[in-house]
Nucleic acid binder design. Structure first.
Lengths: 341, 341
DNA sequence: TTGTATGCGTTATCAC
DNA sequence: GTGATAACGCATACAA
């Protein structure tokens, strides 16, 4: 059983220098009221005595934690880890700490995490909601008390907050149009759950592109699922069993695009000659798979940076944010081998 | 300017029920001393009054944050984000929060982060050190004060702590042996910085395999760098310019294995016929690139889970950990097209 | 420019 | 079983 040597506090430093603790506190916080010489002496003594500020005490006192909470569906997913990386990058520069949790796309977990983060008094919350989430009381917890909230990717229309999205509609439109430009007439789609606006928007963009091109939109040409590798296989199988087979498929993510390509190759179809494919997200594998997947590039790192900037600026200015904006980040259609003969 | 309605505290509840705050505190913490009826009444009132515990105050008082700090070189890297995901998974179950930072492989940033996390009084720290890191005072900060520390992947021999590694030596040995088994005689290597034991061990395993096979080890057959995509290109270029060209290359990660494959294909070499390749880590792209990359699978998620379990068990038992262990997680050599004709 | 006094909300130590 | 009280370390309003 070791006896811990007690941490030195500002009082210890004060005593050592025969001054008051408040002066020490101010000096350590670079309060301009303190004379330069005093500050210098205090800082030096603090250093010598091995002083480590007790941030918990300061947080408790100031009711601020300098901590940003982040909830994503899955940490271990390239887009989300890129966003997290961007958030951390900015947060670090600004002296904030980042607490990360993953909802695993489950509402229940998201709900619990939100309550935990709230109880821990994070200064702000950045999140992309779970696929399952349909009610938002756990988020109102924050917005009701003016704790800054920033949504990205999977946003919530019902709550007022800054939101960062990409132009899913436009990107999907361009992707679909690109397939049509290649002379494809039966462009099918593998889509996500429509309660999430990003998937709704991607689907709408796809439909609009078909319509504008005068192609009749046939409902059997769209399969909606949760966009996993396995779901992708089921979806492509279903599409290929339909009476009128597609000659192109727009997939709402790269994972299902990959499923489709692998399935098609295994079953004797040629990609892109028989069936052209476009995905969404530009996963790391998309560039190197054969054929390389045409896709929509989303700037994950930049989205994270922007989200952190938005939340920190809200945290630092005390007034309630008057006007919330929805920021649309640029996307890029990357044309690779999977869609061009 | 909104006036925030003040949070209700245990004192408010106490006043409302004409009892003492300590009783409220105990009841809310399910202290068995409190009579069931009292507890029930208190909890109900707390609920009605919208009571939210002030975790900051409790942390301050108890000197515990229920927070685990994590430092990785780069969040946005599949292996690390998998580990983080595993850590979060276990931490969530056990009621811990996870704070993440990335060192970007810079010593200076790692140092600052360590100090910040320490000041924030994380209950424990899990980390994989930066490539640059050569001194460890910032980590002694923790070990000196018996704050649990768990290393994974890039560990530090000089500090006593639980460590989680994979058998880099053995895995590299098997990978190299596999290449030799394919009849390769000139097996080169693209290695990482040797101050990190994982890369040292991988290189040693490679050398041992050559030696055991009676192949003479030629120093010009190894190029060490920081294993980025670009470094990989430089390395393969250098290897192919050497007087005796390799007919196989063991790469210390999949990123450089990919660099090598792409470079070789562009320059008219066939993989694996002319040159066989094995990587390390099993990145998501490795399975789907053509040819698919033979590689060593590291259980990132499991490593994260194990790290979290180890640190939490240390946090919960108050005594100083007497005996530290180094846990070796299993790896698997996945043989794909890049190494087998 | 510095010092004094107070309180943040909770838990822990004593009492009763 | 419950209550009164102190203490955690710091920041700040106010005083000097």
């Amino acid at each position: 059983m070791m006896t811990q040597k007690p941490e030195t506090t500002i009082h210890d430093i004060a005593k050592a220098l025969n001054i008051s603790a408040s002066t020490v506190s101010r000096a350590l916080n670079d309060n301009p009221l303190i004379r330069e010489a005093t500050r210098k002496k205090i800082k030096q003594t603090a250093e010598e005595m091995g002083y480590r500020p007790n941030v918990m005490a300061a947080n408790f006192r100031t009711k601020r934690t300098n901590t940003i909470g982040v909830i994503v569906p899955l940490i271990n997913r390239h887009f989300f880890s890129s966003v997290i990386s961007g958030i951390e990058h900015v947060a670090y520069q600004q002296g904030f700490t980042v607490t990360i949790s993953q909802s695993n796309d489950k509402f229940e977990k998201e709900d619990k995490i939100a309550h935990t983060l709230f109880a821990n008094r994070v200064d702000g919350l950045i999140l992309s909601i779970a696929m399952e989430t349909q009610t938002y009381d756990h988020l109102k917890l924050f917005s009701d008390r003016n704790i800054p909230l920033v949504f990205f990717d999977r946003i919530v229309d019902e709550i007022e907050a800054h939101k960062i999205v990409v132009d899913d509609f436009g990107a999907a439109y361009r992707a679909t149009q690109h397939l049509i430009d290649q002379g494809r007439k039966h462009v099918a789609m593998i889509g996500g759950p429509l309660n999430l606006s990003i998937y709704k928007n991607r689907q709408d963009g796809y439909c609009k592109a078909l319509k504008d091109a005068g192609l009749d939109f046939d409902n059997s040409g769209v399969v909606n699922n949760s966009l996993t590798r396995e779901d992708g296989v089921k979806a492509i199988r279903k599409l290929m069993k339909a009476p009128s087979k597609p000659d192109a498929i727009f997939c709402a993510n790269d994972t299902t695009a990959l499923s489709a390509i692998l399935y098609l190759q295994e079953n004797g179809y040629r990609v892109p000659q028989d069936i052209a494919i476009v995905g969404f997200s530009n996963e790391p594998f998309s560039e190197v798979v054969t054929p390389a997947i045409s896709t929509i590039k989303q700037p994950g790192f930049e989205i994270g940076k922007k989200a952190a900037e938005l939340i920190i600026s809200q945290i630092l200015k005390k007034e309630k944010t008057a006007k919330f904006e929805t920021i649309t980040m640029p996307t890029e259609l990357i044309i690779r081998k999977s869609s061009v003969v």
